[in-house]
Design a protein around this nucleic acid. Structure first.
Lengths: 226, 226
DNA sequence: GTCTATACGGAGATAGAC
DNA sequence: GTCTATCTCCGTATAGAC
């Protein structure tokens, strides 16, 4: 936003050559600035209490520009949340292809669910989650999106891994989809529920490990093959 | 609210004797009408989008009366939610003293968690839950209250039951508090998570029973004594 | 594409009569 | 205690110049 102002006043490079920004680039940078400011405002205030004036101030562009780009507050909200959800869950993906071929299944599951928990318990992601939950009645699309994103990037691949482990006789989970839901619920889900209602609850690293290990043991006590 | 109007016009009983309402009763009935209308409005619109004008219309009293009773929108919100949370969870209480003395522990746990699920999955209670979660950042008191209410009325008594079962050798759960969290997560928590993001998701009765039974089996595979 | 300036409605809250 | 009428401000959204 400081950069834009300089451009308008005739910025030059180190040889004194005027820098004429590509209009398309300038537009998409502004678009991004709007998205960033809007996300911060929505996370802090919720949808209804979020103010387009505040987003205007935060983004450094004019309110009319925001409306040209996004049309309305509702559409801005959906665009912002719909854009950030996949990015958020993309961080979770890497770790899960290793499950099917892990030499030590218990250790692999502990590592996977611990990685997930570390990310999903982050304050910004917890706030995003609370925001989406709180607006589900008014924006049901977000519920569908959340489900699809979290299923595609987490549960889905893990279901496949369990299916393969079943076939190989390394696991005995007749309903792999339910088994994944149970594993997630009993590991990540436990501290997540606490943090949902107590954002500032301190969860020591040792405590997280203990809870997650216990959850994995619970899971394997039922589904592991002898 | 129709009743109030009649009173004002000089209602009489069956013998023609004027009915003069006790002012304190009239006041507390109005107070209740405000609370009812406010709860409906907050559940439907969320805190910020809820309108004091709409609550005024819904309650049948004047806006000034609402402010005399509750002072501000914030205080009204806290009073309403703080009042309804304990009532909601009170429905869950009866079933849990039977756990420690149940002849068939598995059946008792299935029945208890099924009862809980039936209540907690009700659309009105799910909406209340979403509302509270969505406003946690702005009303952290509600998180504390939710935790205390749900702990006092559900988890707490169950922790005691597990402790007793441990002592009697009927259960081997070294950390009863964690065990309760795990049991709840893996039974009620599974369909609850689905409904949190998909309010209209249909959960057949047979499916609920299947999920909950499977969760109890998962739990007992680890913690039951042979 | 982007800005300034403004329209217009509805928000929360209160003054003052009864 | 309760009402009617009103104050004041801030909300979303847009018109029109550049």
């Amino acid at each position: 936003m400081g950069a834009e102002a300089q451009d308008a006043q005739g910025a030059t490079d180190e040889y004194g050559i005027p820098i004429i920004p590509d209009p398309a680039d300038a537009a998409s940078r502004k678009r991004q600035a709007i998205i960033d400011a809007a996300l911060a405002e929505f996370l802090a205030e919720g949808y209804s209490a979020a103010s387009m004036d505040a987003i205007t101030r935060g983004s450094g562009v004019s309110k009319a520009t925001i409306y040209k780009h996004f049309g309305s507050k509702e559409r801005l909200f959906l665009a912002v949340i719909g854009g950030v959800l996949p990015k958020t869950y993309a961080d979770l993906e890497p770790s899960n292809s290793t499950i099917a071929d892990a030499p030590d299944l218990r250790a692999a599951l502990v590592r996977l669910t611990t990685d997930w928990a570390r990310i999903l318990l982050r304050p910004d992601i917890m706030s995003l989650r609370r925001l989406v939950i709180g607006e589900i009645d008014r924006f049901p699309q977000l519920g569908q999106l959340w489900y699809r994103v979290s299923y595609d990037m987490n549960n889905g691949p893990l279901v496949e891994a369990f299916t393969e482990l079943n076939a190989r006789g390394a696991l005995a989970a007749p309903d792999p989809k339910l088994a994944v839901q149970q594993l997630v619920a009993v590991t990540v889900g436990v501290p997540q529920l606490v943090r949902t209602f107590s954002p500032d609850a301190v969860i020591e690293d040792a405590e997280l490990t203990r809870v997650i290990s216990s959850g994995v043991d619970l899971f394997l006590a039922r589904y592991a093959t002898a």
